[in-house]
């Protein structure tokens, strides 16, 4: 997965991996395991998990802005069914849904 740029396209159904390692992770806890839709590909960036421990020479990884339905994220969500949340997720945290 690492280094694979634009593995997903806007509109693709994706799921954030459900994993709980230690370390500096930018995929928020509450979104792990949740399914959403790619809103856009944001380009390639250094991997924060590696950069946080001074490993700066690894290959860049893709970043995707993913849109989730709030009702999917929070089972007890009180709001409109159309309410949504957008989060940028690095490629190594995404799998096809």
């Amino acid at each position: 997965m690492t280094g694979a740029s634009a593995a997903f396209a806007a509109g693709d159904a994706v799921r954030v991996r459900r994993a709980f390692p230690i370390g500096h992770v930018r995929a928020p806890f509450y979104i792990r395991g949740k399914a959403g839709t790619v809103e856009r590909y944001c380009g390639e960036f250094g991997n924060p998990e590696e950069r946080s421990v001074m490993q700066e020479d690894g290959p860049p990884i893709g970043l995707y802005r993913v849109r989730f339905r709030q009702a999917e994220v929070w089972p007890d969500y009180r709001g409109r069914p159309e309410d949504s949340i957008d989060i940028e997720i690095y490629a190594n945290w995404l799998e096809r849904a």
Binding site: G23, H24, E49, R51, S52, M54, E56
Partner: peptide, 12 residues
Amino acid sequence: IFNLDEFRHAIE
């Protein structure tokens, strides 16, 4: 001198 992710990691 150091990167933003190291900085955030230290705060965490």
